[in-house]
């Protein structure tokens, strides 16, 4: 059973999201803070490109929040590279204590959840959570070289290139982090790494049901339930598992970023940055503007590696949920 922790004094200070041009063609294009031409972001390698995006996201965030990096009490970060190199490297430019976390594509929610706990327990006044991913580096990490001409299946999801960062604080603001549900790692009993969306639906289902049960809520309490990167197929699987075909406010960030209507890319977007750039831009902005009042973000991740996949191990899947609420005042 997943665990749900409720908070009363954790607020979102500011958030920031950057991505490449390809990600702007979907729903979130107008909400992004900086847009890059390509995966390299003006650098020489994909890895440097991801570092640049991640670093820029932090710099923009500090500027937006009008704080100095020294004010941050603790930071949680993660990405998809081996030994979460990008996040650690970016953190080495700053003074704050850094904890690297890995939750595959659920990293954004995992780091935000941990940051919220630190603030809720009064161990930190200001905590930072950030994550990044890049199509070039992730393909190399988990699949084949980017220019390798193997035929991709329709169920494939493409890694979103970008970075997102968010600051949580104990000082009152408009958006409250009301609760976090950490899910359990579930054995998907499959080895197929080409269709991760539909197996991650299993974890999303488990975490969603546990969250609603623990919080004694229903689907109708939320204006939006946004899953991380289930893709077109995974979202349908989740709706079927929930037995709710008609549920309209259950959406997927992967299809937000790579909109199937005008920029269809296989089954949608995935990757650590997928939910990060969607939620830290559009969702936070819309909460601020009162378009949404109560949002549940579910980050889903598939915790396999290239070696485990080759050795034919079952893929463990996980999902973490964060509940965001628009405050009453102002």
């Amino acid at each position: 059973m997943a665990i749900t922790l409720t908070f009363k004094n954790v607020y979102v200070l500011k958030s920031c999201a950057v991505a490449t041009f390809e990600e702007t063609k979907g729903n979130i294009g107008t909400y992004l803070d900086r847009i890059y031409e390509d995966l390299y972001a003006g650098e020489n390698t994909y890895e440097d490109g991801e570092i640049k995006m991640c670093q820029d996201a932090l710099e923009i965030l500090f500027e937006k929040a009008k704080i100095s990096p020294k004010d941050i009490d603790i930071a949680f970060g993660g990405d998809l590279l081996n030994q979460i190199f990008v996040s650690s490297y970016v953190a080495s430019h700053y003074e704050f204590p850094f904890l690297g976390v890995y939750g595959a594509c659920s990293t954004s929610m995992l780091s935000l959840g941990l940051a919220s706990i630190m603030v809720a327990k009064k161990m930190a006044k200001l905590a930072l959570a950030y994550t990044s991913s890049n199509y070039g580096t992730a393909e190399r990490q988990f699949r084949y070289p980017t220019s390798y001409g193997i035929k991709k299946k329709e169920a494939t999801t493409l890694t979103v290139s970008g970075a997102g960062a968010i600051l949580v604080t104990s000082k009152k603001s408009n958006i409250e982090v009301s609760s976090v549900t950490f899910g359990k790692s579930i054995d998907s009993k499959t080895q197929d790494v080409t269709d991760l969306g539909s197996i991650m639906a299993l974890a999303a289902y488990d975490t969603l049901i546990s969250h609603l049960e623990n919080r004694k809520q229903t689907f109708e309490d939320y204006d939006l339930i946004l899953t991380g990167d289930l893709s077109l197929i995974g979202l349908e699987v989740l709706k079927d598992l929930l037995n709710r075909k008609e549920i309209n406010h259950l959406e997927d960030a992967g299809t937000w970023v790579y909109d199937p209507k005008n920029n269809k890319k296989f089954a949608g977007g995935s990757g650590a940055a997928c939910l990060a750039i969607s939620s830290f831009s559009k969702v936070i902005d819309d909460l601020e503007k009162k378009h949404y009042h109560h949002v549940l973000l579910i980050g889903t991740g598939s915790l396999h590696s290239k070696i485990s996949a080759l050795q034919g191990k079952n893929i463990p899947v996980i999902a973490h949920a964060i509940e965001l609420k628009r405050g009453e005042e102002s």
Partner: peptide, 16 residues
């Protein structure tokens, strides 16, 4: 976890 049901649902949504 009901894997039988899950596998049925998953199979239903597989891309042709």
């Amino acid at each position: 976890m009901d894997y039988v049901h899950f596998n049925e649902v998953k199979k239903m949504h597989q891309v042709k």
